[in-house]
Every structure is written in structure tokens, then in C-alpha cells.
Amino acid sequence: MPDIPVRKRKSVLYNLGKFKVLYLMFLPGILFLLVNNYMPMFGVLIAFKNVNYADGIWGSPWSGWDNFKYLFSTSDAWEITRNTLAYNTVFIALNLIVGVGLAILLNEVKNKAMSKLYQSLMLLPYFLSMIVVSYLVLAFLGKDSGFMNSTILQLFGGQPIDWYSEPKYWPYILPLVNTWKNIGYYAVIYLAAVVGIDEEYYEAAVLDGASKWHQIRYITVPFLVPLIVIMTLLQIGRIFYADFSLFYQVPLESGALFPVTNVLDTYVYRTFLIGGDIGMSSAAGLYQAVVGFVLVLVSNTIVRRMDKDNALF
């Protein structure tokens, strides 16, 4: 290292020796990141190739941008893009509003045993397989024996509905199912931040005559803003990714629901099943990753200009 000043070189060597145990602990995570996240990136080449199994990935001819043209030239391009963006936008909003709301409510539960019970009950659906969730939804929405048709609608004198043949209901059903399944995860994260707020702020607010709503508005929410920004930016990065199981398993692959349940992931999957073209599937994945990356950069830049301290990086 001839270009590094002697004093700086000694400082680097000193830090390496002083923190060598920490670096060794850090090493497995770095290796996992390289093997799991960076080495597979060579598969990006597949998006620009017309892959055939006889020649392999490297020997297959280049296709240029043809695989990407497929995504935008199809008649369903607008539909799947609209559904993917619209649903994820609603999911992000619900995860934020409901997650923060439940976290604040849980913080008001002073009985520790009941608080733990509520947290466990909310978090339980997060660990359920989407296949199990799809059967639970079927138990509610089944045409003949579903709880909605056999109990709720009869109670109010309504007629049974064939839920899996009526697209107009699913823009409401899918966000509801997604929120029920995932909200425990977000609520627990926000609750950890709420619990960390110093109680002295609330005591001072009470002495000044602040109501509970004013305490939430002027103390709790401002303290949660940095975490809210981080969680929102991370979700924006995956706004072009759809929960495949949610849109594939829960509607039971009903063709009548495709106009409102067909998203980019399910469309590519069905196309791959029909044509078996992994180049097109890889092009879709690369497209989602690049757009998500750009959206995170743009969103973070906007946040940085508004408040530098709340930016992700």
C-alpha cells in the first residue's frame, strides 16, 4: 500500500486488529449475501437470450430486447400493470394506517398478559401458508356452504352470491385478506417504536391539558415518522412485485376473476406454463427489479429534500 500515508495505514491495521472479532462475526453475513444475492445476478443474461436447453445459457443465441417487448406488446399489458400498481399502493396505505393504529392501541393495553395475547393473535396469520389462507377464504365465500352465503346473507335476507365468479368484489376482498394476514408483522414493528418513546413527553403533555388525540398527533406520530418512511420506502421498492400466492391461490385461479386478479407475477407464470420461455420470465423479473430500484431512489431523494434526517440513505 505505497500510496497510503504511514499514519493512516497504521490506523487501518490497528482497527482491523482491534475489531477482528467483530469482522469475523460479520463475515458469515457477507458470504451469505454474496452467495444468495450477488452470484445469482449472472442470471440477468437470460433476460436477453433466447434460451434453449440444448445449448445452455451461455450457448443460447442473444435475443436483444425481444423478451421485454413481449411484456408491453401484449393486450393485457395495461391490465396487469394497473392491477399490480393499484393493489400494492392500497396495500402500502393499509399497512401504514392500520399498522400504526393497532400499535398505538396495543400500547394502551397496560395488562402485559393481555398485550402479549393480542400481539400473538395478530401475528399468527402472518405465519400461515397462503394455501391455508385460501381455504379459510373459501370457507367464508364458498357458494353453497360458505359462511357469508349460508349465515350472514341469510341473516339479512340477501341472496347467495357466487363470489368466485363476480370480479367486482375482489378489489375489496384481496386488500382485506392481505391486511389480515400481514398486519401483525407491521403492528409489532411500529409497536416496538411506540414503546421506545420516553413517557416524560406524555406526562408533560397531560400536565399541559393535551387530550389523547393530541398526544398521538403531536408526540407519537412525529416519533414514528422515521420508521414510517423507512418501511414505506422498502415497500415502494417492491411495488412492481405482487404477492404471487395471494393473487394465485386465494382466487382459486378462477378465470372469471382474471380482469381484477391478474398481476405481473401471475401473468408471467401462466405464460411460462404455456410457452416454457424462461427468457420472458427473466425479463419480467429484471424489469420489476430495475423499476423498484429506481422508485426507491426517487422516493428517497424526495424524502431527503423534505427532511434529510428521515431519508433512508
Rank of each mutant, 00 (worst) to 15 (best):
I239R: 01
Y248Q: 13
V290Q: 00
G142Q: 03
D243I: 09
L312N: 06
L105P: 04
Y201K: 10
Y218A: 07
G255L: 12
L13W: 10
F140I: 14
K69F: 13
Y118N: 06
L174F: 01
G43S: 11
L141Y: 07
L105I: 11
V290C: 00
V100G: 03
Y87F: 13
F19I: 01
L312I: 14
V137E: 01
N37V: 15
V132Q: 03
S73R: 13
P40L: 00
N52F: 03
Y23V: 09
L128P: 07
D307M: 08
Y202S: 00
F42I: 13
L102W: 01
L191Q: 00
T179N: 02
V132F: 12
I219R: 04
Y267W: 15
P125S: 11
L176F: 14
Y14G: 06
S120W: 04
Y201C: 01
L227E: 11
S11A: 15
L71K: 05
T84L: 02
G43V: 03
E166S: 14
L121H: 07
M41V: 04
S299D: 09
I173G: 03
M306C: 15
L252T: 13
A139V: 07
K116Y: 04
L106G: 00
A256P: 01
I239Q: 00
F272T: 11
L191A: 00
Y23C: 08
P259L: 06
A113P: 03
Q288G: 06
L227M: 15
R217F: 04
P28G: 00
S115C: 13
V291C: 08
L136F: 10
A289V: 10
Q215L: 05
L252I: 14
N67D: 05
L45W: 08
L257I: 10
T84P: 02
I80G: 05
M114Y: 14
Y164I: 04
I219D: 01
A113Y: 14
F32K: 06
N52Q: 02
M1K: 12
Y118W: 10
L257V: 07
L234A: 05
G101R: 08
P61L: 01
L96R: 02
S115D: 09
M41Y: 02
L141W: 01
K181S: 04
W62Y: 15
K8G: 02
A289H: 03
S120I: 11
F156Q: 04
L207Q: 06
Y135H: 14
V194Q: 01
L286H: 00
P222A: 10
S73E: 14
G279F: 09
L27K: 11
I302T: 09
T151R: 06
F91I: 10
M306D: 08
L121R: 12
I302K: 07
L155K: 13
K110V: 09
P167D: 02
Y53P: 01
V303H: 05
V98W: 02
Y269L: 10
L246S: 10
A289L: 11
Q288V: 10
V90H: 06
V6I: 15
L264M: 13
V51M: 07
V195D: 05
E200D: 13
G99F: 02
W213L: 15
V137S: 07
P167Q: 06
K20V: 08
G17S: 08
G285E: 11
K20Q: 12
F272D: 04
L227C: 08
L295C: 14
I228Y: 09
G157H: 08
Y169L: 05
N83I: 05
K181Y: 04
V109R: 07
V221L: 13
G237R: 02
V263S: 01
E199H: 14
L141T: 09
K110C: 01
